[in-house]
Design a protein around this nucleic acid. Structure first.
Lengths: 235, 235, 235, 235
DNA sequence: TACTAACCGAGACGGTACGTCAGGTCTTGGT
DNA sequence: ACCAAGACCTGACGTACCGTCTCGGTTAGTA
């Protein structure tokens, strides 16, 4: 990024990465420990041993610093497993995410989202630096699942990801009950398995509620593959 | 509520409702229009015509005022429909929620959640004043669905509600894509209908990942026998 | 005061003095105990058991209340003695004033003066209600002294009173050292007796500085009798 | 004072004196023009062009600022003259003080004293920063007068200073009549010259009231009449 | 004896200033 | 050129009193 050619040295004192790293580390720790309220530029400066001006030299404001700290330190810790089954991979990763987000990372993420509500740049950075890349990853796994035949062909990946991961973010932001692996497992089962006792109901709902976007293609494919699959909505 | 008998008048000058109402109205408008950043006690005072001290007389801090404004003005605007079908009711309400939250109410709610991340009281107020009551309402509808035979008996209402509403909150807080009725309809269909191409998969996942709450029996049974089998999980 | 003829009774409930008295008492106590900073309308109301509005019904603001409390409760406690000698009366009263002002009354007076600096009405009330009447009293005693032949005929009573009582007020307002009877006695002696070793000096000063009020009588007597005697204290 | 060696530079941005000076200047002007009531931190900030936070960085509260403004701007304007005669010096300085205090400085000082009545720190600062140093100066002049033989050896400097300057402070704080050079001259004459028509009276009083500080100049005259009266304080 | 106007307690209300805190900018001197 | 230190301006926070006002309840003299 800011590197010129390595042969071409700039004048003056070269930038020591230690300062930057110390700042990011301190930022991340504060975010984990105290959330947004304790995350003060001054606090970061004090903890890192850096000066406030050094922070502002590299990041334009506290939102940017928060995101940067998160991305540098925490973001990449949750990787997808890669077994044979896409569904199994997703489910186990979902459980792991629920577990991890239930701890310090959750505090951090909720702080970042909160910051984003009054700081469009921070929101954008969070989206582009974390949310969207991870959604892309998830989509790849889902695509593998479709290719495998584990999942129906017509599913809308974005909707599925929202259905799987949305509840987790919801629970860390609106903590009406703690996150747990068990809850995540149940969530995955519900989403993958459906809830209906009788397959006929949804269509009625769709008609009744005026839905304009019935997903028929999937259904047909599904019908082929699982002939006696009763939840055929159209039938 | 906190009134003693109506015959028992309180001493002192009675509170003029106009002021309180004007304050709440102004608070709500500011929250809708500008989110958290524009939501200042001073701004509320100016817009409402009240004095700052009058605001602080009734609400201890800005978080409490934000919640109160939302609850007083906006919260009750989204009611459940009550047709015959529980599932249809939920789905159509979900779509309506998605629609409404996609507009000004969404800004307000996201601001409130953000505020809650650094203000435990505000978070508590939001939960107790809005989230939990609405979840209870939803649970009643779900229970009706189970009683109807529309839904399986074994489902965990909290998980279902998380699966249905979590994604909406997620999307207003992390707006990677706009909310829409269609998206909500698709979401409902996914959750109610499931995603699996083959119903066998989840169990494998469950086994692999150590889930303790697999809902397999129903589906197999349903597939076989189908109709109004209400196999309660506990049985 | 605001009474119309005593025969002409007004309709309605007459004013009960208890409330007024309780208010004044509380006001005075607060002033004595805590000075200006603790003297709050609210504090007075609470301590007296009266309502704030009752206070404002009778006194226009806190300054007026402070003065009224002082005048009603404390002011008249210091009376002049009346022996034969005017000088002795003044001196003993000065000592008594110093003693009394050194205690709670001093706190009260200093608070009132302080209040007066930012409240012209209060200052005026203090002057007219306390300071000037007492100065008039003192002037009478001084006049008696002149009539007696105890004091020179040409003295300016206002200047004398300033010289005698000014230092007391100065010491309670600028407490560089505590008030005491001894100090007051020394003060009286200095003022009544003068400080000069040689009586010639003042005239020179007077001439040089343009004084318009030379006190010649005493000096002449002194000049005659006691030339350059430098009576050391230790002798 | 607080400087370490000049070679030892402090880190960080050095303080720009302009800001501090502008603040003190504004503070002083406000005090002169409007007294305590107009002396608001906000007003000082506005007039000086500085920020409120800059004021609070250097002074802990409004009392401290008031004192500082006075000491920095006004306090040193009144110096003692230094002619041969101590008495003449004191008298002419007293007249000058009366003249000066009768104008803007008087407003300032009365405001400071008033502030001091509810702010012990401010009172202490006024005493230590202004009152006591000036009293010390006056004592030096008085000592010179004693050395000269102009003044009696036994006089208590503190009492004399109270007698001379107390009335001035009294008059600016309790302005029953305006200050003037003439009044000050008369005051000086009274104090230096005494008031008694006959020198005998005070002793009676002294004895009766237990005074321990008899005024001797008069005594010389008295010595004739009451020769062996040795009311030496030390005995 | 009933009326009725003033008294009284309570407290809502619009204001103003306080002192605190954080954010973000700028200016030094040192390395 | 980078960095620590910290002065500086801005603006919101929550608190404390002020003085005004509007209620409901009470009470003593009058009709």
């Amino acid at each position: 990024m800011s590197n010129t050619k390595s042969t071409q040295r700039r004048r003056g004192r070269p930038q020591g990465d230690e300062v930057k790293i110390a700042i990011l580390k301190a930022a991340n720790e504060l975010l984990e420990e105290q959330g947004l309220s304790g995350f003060t530029i001054d606090a970061v400066a004090t903890r890192s041993g850096a000066a406030r001006s050094s922070i502002y030299r590299w990041w334009p404001n506290r939102g940017a610093l928060a995101i940067a700290g998160f991305l540098a330190e925490t973001a990449q810790k949750i990787a997808y497993p890669a077994t044979g089954s896409a569904v199994a991979d997703i489910k186990s990763q979902l459980m792991r995410v629920a577990e991890v987000y239930g701890q310090k990372v959750g505090r951090t993420i909720s702080a970042l989202v909160a910051q984003g509500q009054s700081d469009p740049e921070a929101l954008k950075a969070l989206l582009e630096g974390y949310v969207l890349p991870r959604r892309d990853e998830a989509k790849k796994v889902l695509a593998r699942g479709v290719a495998n035949g584990e999942l129906r062909a017509g599913i809308d990946f974005d909707v599925v990801i929202d259905a799987l991961y949305g509840p987790i973010w919801y629970r860390i932001l609106v903590p009406h009950a703690p996150l747990s692996r068990e809850w995540a497992a149940a969530l995955a089962d519900h989403v993958f398995g459906g809830l209906m006792a009788s397959p006929a109901a949804p269509e009625g709902v769709v008609d009744a509620a005026g839905s304009t976007a019935p997903p028929p293609a999937r259904r047909r494919a599904a019908r082929r593959a699982v002939p006696q699959n009763p939840p055929s909505r159209g039938s």
